Amino acid sequence: MRLPDSDKKMNFLSIRVTIITLSILLIIAIVIFVVFWKKPPQYYVQYGVALGTNVTISYATGRGNAQQVVETMFKELDNINNIFNPWLPNSELYNLNHSNGQWTQVSPELLDVLEYSIQIAQKTDGNFDPSIGRLVNLWGFNSTDSRNWHLPSSSEIANILPHVGYQNVQFDGNKVRLLNGVWIDLGGIAKGYAVQLLVEMAKENDPNSTGYVDIGGDIGIIGPKYGNQPWVIGVRNPRGTSNDALTYVNLYRGYIATSGDYERYITVGGKRYYHIINPKTGYSDNYFQSVTSISDNGMLSDAFGTAAMVAGPNDISQWAEELGIGYFLIYENGQIQNNTLWNEYAK
């Protein structure tokens, strides 16, 4: 018995639809399997010490060279120290500080950071000032040995203040001249520069790589955790232990840095004096316990906190709005304040 041609056609179409349906279901199943069963990236984590502080780098890449890239990053930190450490004899910055006011050719790296530092100094009315090297030295805060930290006399500070001021830094192409005996100390911005440079090195190796760089609490995000999750970063309680966080922020990108009064400080007569020095007075101020900043620029996040610790609360909101910074402030009395952009990062 033969089927009518119309029935044959219907049967063929039914089989074809079934095959197409099964193919679609198979594709969907494969996609679901890949999404949910894909092996998460394996992070290579390395710890070390550089720029006078602890360093952690966590890195994952599909190119299989995570360890090699991280080791290259640590080597680059040695190079950065040889450029930016003002207290290391024969470093590039040390030599510039001891150039006796002569025009001195500097590397592109030092020139970039110096020029950016002066821009931030101008933007913050001199509350961030890279020319405070002689003040840092006077207080002994250039040393990691707390026995060297001390309260200078008022006359000693008065004698140093004429040798401070970012206006004394002059540029001529790739040459720099320091007038009036100023010394440059880039401690308020160098870590941010280093973090950003290492993040850029990681992304250059693999644009889809993930992880983070942490240099003494200055943190840059290479990429979201496992490719789609935030890195959860705590803001330290300045009056607690290093593991005591007051709040947390979720970062998929960007740079976060904290400036505070709790790392290098002395207490004299019941008053706390710390390493972030007001370039106009020669003393540290007591507006905040700490300032934490988030932005898309490592140097900016680092320098903003320093400027805010010096300036106090009056100008911070305006600076943050103009520069695109999220901030979290802890006042001296423990009161907390943050802005809208911080809340967007914290979600």
Results as ranks from 00 to 15, higher is better:
61 T>W: 01
50 A>N: 04
32 I>H: 12
68 Q>K: 10
49 V>F: 12
45 V>F: 10
65 N>P: 03
29 A>T: 12
23 S>N: 11
67 Q>M: 05
42 Q>D: 14
32 I>E: 11
30 I>H: 13
33 F>P: 08
53 T>Q: 06
78 D>E: 14
42 Q>C: 07
59 Y>N: 01
80 I>P: 02
36 F>T: 10
36 F>H: 11
32 I>W: 09
69 V>R: 12
68 Q>C: 04
74 F>K: 01
81 N>R: 09
24 I>M: 12
49 V>R: 14
53 T>V: 09
67 Q>W: 06
69 V>K: 11
64 G>F: 02
46 Q>A: 05
52 G>F: 06
44 Y>E: 02
42 Q>R: 12
52 G>H: 02
59 Y>I: 00
48 G>V: 05
29 A>R: 15
60 A>V: 01
26 L>V: 07
54 N>K: 13
48 G>A: 05
41 P>Y: 08
66 A>W: 02
68 Q>A: 05
53 T>G: 04
60 A>S: 05
83 I>Q: 03
58 S>L: 01
69 V>C: 03
31 V>Q: 10
57 I>D: 00
30 I>T: 14
82 N>E: 11
81 N>C: 04
68 Q>I: 00
28 I>W: 11
36 F>G: 05
50 A>K: 01
81 N>H: 13
27 I>Q: 09
56 T>N: 06
35 V>R: 15
57 I>L: 07
75 K>M: 15
58 S>F: 07
53 T>N: 08
66 A>G: 03
72 T>E: 13
48 G>I: 03
25 L>A: 15
57 I>R: 04
41 P>V: 07
23 S>F: 15
25 L>M: 15
39 K>F: 08
40 P>F: 13
60 A>Q: 02
32 I>F: 12
60 A>H: 05
58 S>T: 09
51 L>K: 02
